[in-house]
């Protein structure tokens, strides 16, 4: 362990992950990194979900200073300010992928709007940093394979809550929102016929592979998914400049470690699902993407009309996409072609 200075500043971080989650492990790596970089002057402690409060109350707990910081998803605040959703997940409008969405925060107006949301719209005493990526989430687990949208529309599907659920509903799918612990029992008793959770590395802990064997890898609903470190501003303002820089740097480093962790650990988990559990992996039927794009347009138009700040954020993302997508999508095509060529050779 790291030696702690006697007057170490304690930073308790209420996360939304259970201790068995691979993301909780990655956050504990972040904890160690910060503690080492600060020479023990900052004593970070990552807390599993529910240790102080549950996942829906993390924002309020940090705002009130019950804990100094939290790791949560901005989409959980979308009940308070609808635009919050856009800082975690994006619908299919501009064609941003996981990395170009991060670029919007760091290179575009993202971080500025992000702070504006916390200050002026959520009105919380919080400074936010994006940090943990879990995008490219699978469409999920299905009782029976589906051929097209029509097959999907016949099913009861566990989707994430909020605007993501609204997108599925707009596609004509019966979307049910269930907390993580309820998914497997509901699948067993036929309350749902299909479900998404996070990604292979996390899904394998949930145990849906024991009930259903059909896995659709390409989801579109959380193609980008960004998790945040939120810090109580009073606490933040009291930190000396070097400790602030250490935290900032650690959030950036965690973007990298979660990205690489996702690539490798999901791949390993997917192999295990296929080989040990006999899971069949399918490509998502192409007409679903078109339907999702149409639903995105409808839902976005509705929220843009309802809330000027939502409109402002969405348009900033669209503008950013217009600049980067023509270039970046070609590069992604390069990697895709190289990967396909390698797969064809094997």
């Amino acid at each position: 362990g790291t030696a702690q200075a006697a007057d170490a500043i304690k930073m308790r971080v209420q996360t939304i992950f259970p201790s068995a989650s691979m993301y909780f492990g990655m956050l504990q790596d972040m904890e160690k990194r910060i503690n080492r970089m600060s020479g023990g002057r900052l004593d970070v402690e990552m807390l599993p979900v529910g240790a102080v409060v549950g996942f829906t109350e993390t924002l309020t707990a940090v705002h009130q200073g019950i804990v100094e910081a939290g790791v949560t998803g901005a989409h959980f605040h979308s009940g308070k300010v609808s635009a919050a959703y856009l800082f975690a997940d994006q619908p299919a409008v501009g064609g941003l992928d996981q990395l170009s969405a991060v670029a919007w925060f760091l290179e575009g107006d993202g971080n500025k709007l992000y702070r504006e949301m916390h200050d002026d719209h959520l009105k919380v005493n919080i400074i936010p940093f994006i940090t943990l990526l879990s995008g490219g989430q699978p469409l999920g687990w299905f009782k029976n394979p589906i051929e097209n949208l029509e097959d999907f529309q016949k099913l009861k599907y566990r989707s994430p809550p909020g605007i993501t659920g609204e997108l599925f509903t707009t596609m004509g799918i019966t979307a049910v929102a269930l907390p993580g612990g309820e998914i497997v029992p509901s699948a067993e008793r036929g309350v749902i016929d299909a479900a998404e959770w996070i990604n292979p590395g996390e899904d394998i802990n949930l145990g849906l592979q024991d009930i259903w064997k059909n896995y659709y890898l390409q989801g579109f609903h959380q193609a980008t998914d960004i998790t945040e470190l939120i810090i109580n501003k009073d606490f933040w303002n009291k930190l000396p400049d070097d400790l602030q820089a250490i935290i900032e740097t650690a959030t950036l480093a965690t973007i990298t470690t979660t990205l690489t962790g996702n690539i490798y650990r999901n791949a390993v988990a997917l192999n295990e699902l296929k080989e040990k559990h006999g899971v069949k992996v399918y490509d998502t039927p192409p007409d679903l993407f078109a339907a999702f794009a149409a639903a995105s347009e409808e839902v976005m138009a509705k929220h843009k009309a309802a809330d000027p700040f939502f409109k402002k954020v969405a348009e900033s993302q669209e503008e950013f996409a217009k600049v980067v997508v023509p270039y970046w999508t070609k590069l992604l095509a390069l990697y895709a072609s190289m990967g396909e060529a390698a797969l064809a050779k094997n």
């Binding site: 009940g79 959520l122 809550p161 659920g165 049910v176 907390p179």
Partner: peptide, 16 residues
């Protein structure tokens, strides 16, 4: 009162 100010809606289900 914060919830009233934000006209907060539930996000745990599709009903909101």
């Amino acid at each position: 009162s914060v919830s009233w100010e934000q006209r907060e809606v539930g996000i745990t289900g599709p009903w909101a």
